[in-house]
Design a protein around this nucleic acid. Structure first.
Lengths: 280, 280
DNA sequence: ATCACTTACGGGTGACGTAAAAATC
DNA sequence: GATTTTTACGTCACCCGTAAGTGAT
């Protein structure tokens, strides 16, 4: 079988058209490449070059060989990439979610369940999550509905209730609940990374403006000095705590309550069985 | 880049499941393979195996690597095949023809025109000839008509006149010509490798029987002891000589005269220009 | 004189074998 | 004791560099 270095020398010669330039590019000397080209001809038992006294050309056969060499080397590179990638995959659990709430709740549980493994979480729209699950960018994804397809395993993993987070001066601050209709038209402070909630609030409160802040830290800081309503959820309150000087009033609308489902490929289920069982 | 021998060792281990058996298969010793497997892990910078004291297993990452290795080696093999094949193609002129006559006439000219090259000739039906020309199995083909397509270059390269080859006792033995109609119903001795002529005689003499012999030598031998008519052509007579004790009477029918065209791919024309020019 | 390839020779890396150890069955 | 992997050490092949040579520009 042809040695890899010979293929590298060959493609370098094809690319640079002369042995001396190819040698430079490879950080080798000309004589080395001369020898390699002869060795290639010897191993194939076939002429690959036309030799004029001063110049060396690939003949038709040589061109065929060089093209194959390119493909083989390309394949070697993707091999290295893929091997390193699958190795990383076996050392990290990547979870994609359509909303931040479930990640807040589940990440601590994940780190406890998969000691030795790194946990990486990410938010994306449903389409990206699905393709990512299929190409194993994610081991698990979190959606607002189960997937009934034969390929997937789905399990309910929690729910979230959207609340309006109001200063005490707000007219609804002491209600038991509010509705989207009641709040429609008010301007909200909102973090930009809220996933699927973004579409819901924009749909039900089309008259409202949403002032986006990136990161909940900056939101909290701004909210402390502002009387504008913000959003919170039962999950965010349970995990991050209550917001200072504000009351969280749940939205009564049906769409303000969301169920979440944790989903993996059936083919990967065995590795994750322990996790799903403790998700009761 | 990973050395080829490491890939070979890896696929051998995947195939034989144990280092010792793989070593046997490769005509190497166990320690060599141990070293190779460690070297692979080192070069990828990744664990590829699960080690129990007595046994070595590929882990998930290792399986991925081994599959890539298999593909790469397969590609190397096809590379060697294809390189040797294209080399042979450049050393031989392969000509396909729809009838034997033109080959009889042209082969000596080909060997004279392409000194240093081997000439290989073959008969096939038009469809096979065309696909063979397109995939470069043939450098040239001979058909009964030119190809007007942009892809091909065609040139008239001779013609052939079919004759009935009759013993002197035959009633038409002294005629200047015969017709298919006159001979229809008579049984002919015929070689099986006559290409397109086979269809013609069967079409115009549907009442006749054709007793097939393989190879013109056996035909001549049998014909010497038989009074059954056979076929000959002007070409066969000019090149192989007259048949003993027989008269060749040309068929007067239009279909008994055939023109031949030598055809190559336009993309290959430059290599064959000298040949086509002397075909005047 | 310079450039491009070839030939000849010497050195050092590394692929392989031998030998032996460790561990399991 | 047999089998399998691992470790240690010596050797030989071969890949590369240096130096010198041949033509062509």
């Amino acid at each position: 079988m042809i040695d890899t270095y010979l293929l590298e020398h060959l493609v370098a010669f094809k690319k640079h058209r002369t042995l001396s330039e190819a040698a430079q590019a490879l950080h080798l000397t000309q004589p080395t490449l001369t020898r390699s080209m002869h060795k290639l001809e010897e191993e194939f038992g076939v002429k690959l070059f036309e030799r004029e006294k001063k110049r060396l050309y690939l003949n038709e056969t040589g061109k065929v060989a060089a093209e194959y060499a390119e493909n083989i080397l390309r394949m070697q590179e993707t091999m290295e990439e893929q091997v390193r990638l699958t190795d990383r995959r076996h050392k990290t659990i990547a979870v994609g979610s359509c909303a931040p709430g479930p990640l807040l709740e589940l990440t601590p549980k994940l780190t406890a369940a998969f000691t030795q493994m790194a946990i990486s979480t990410e938010m994306a729209d449903e389409q990206s999550l699905l393709t990512g699950l299929n190409n194993k960018t994610y081991q698990m994804i979190i959606l607002t509905h189960p997937l009934e397809d034969e390929l997937y395993y789905s399990k309910h993993c929690g729910s979230e209730q959207l609340c309006a987070c109001l200063v005490s001066e707000h007219k609804y601050a002491y209600e038991n609940s509010v509705t989207f209709a009641q709040m429609n038209g008010e301007s909200f402070l909102m973090v930009s990374e809220v996933g699927i909630w973004d579409a819901i609030v924009r749909k039900h409160m089309p008259q409202s403006k949403f002032l986006l802040l990136s990161g909940s830290e900056s939101l909290i800081e701004v909210a402390d000095t502002s009387s504008l309503p913000t959003f919170s959820t039962d999950l965010s309150i349970r995990i991050l705590g209550m917001r200072r000087h504000r009351f969280s009033i749940p939205f009564a609308d049906e769409d303000a309550h969301m169920d979440f489902y944790c989903i993996c490929l059936k083919s990967e289920y065995q590795h994750l069985a322990k996790w799903f069982k403790q998700l009761s």
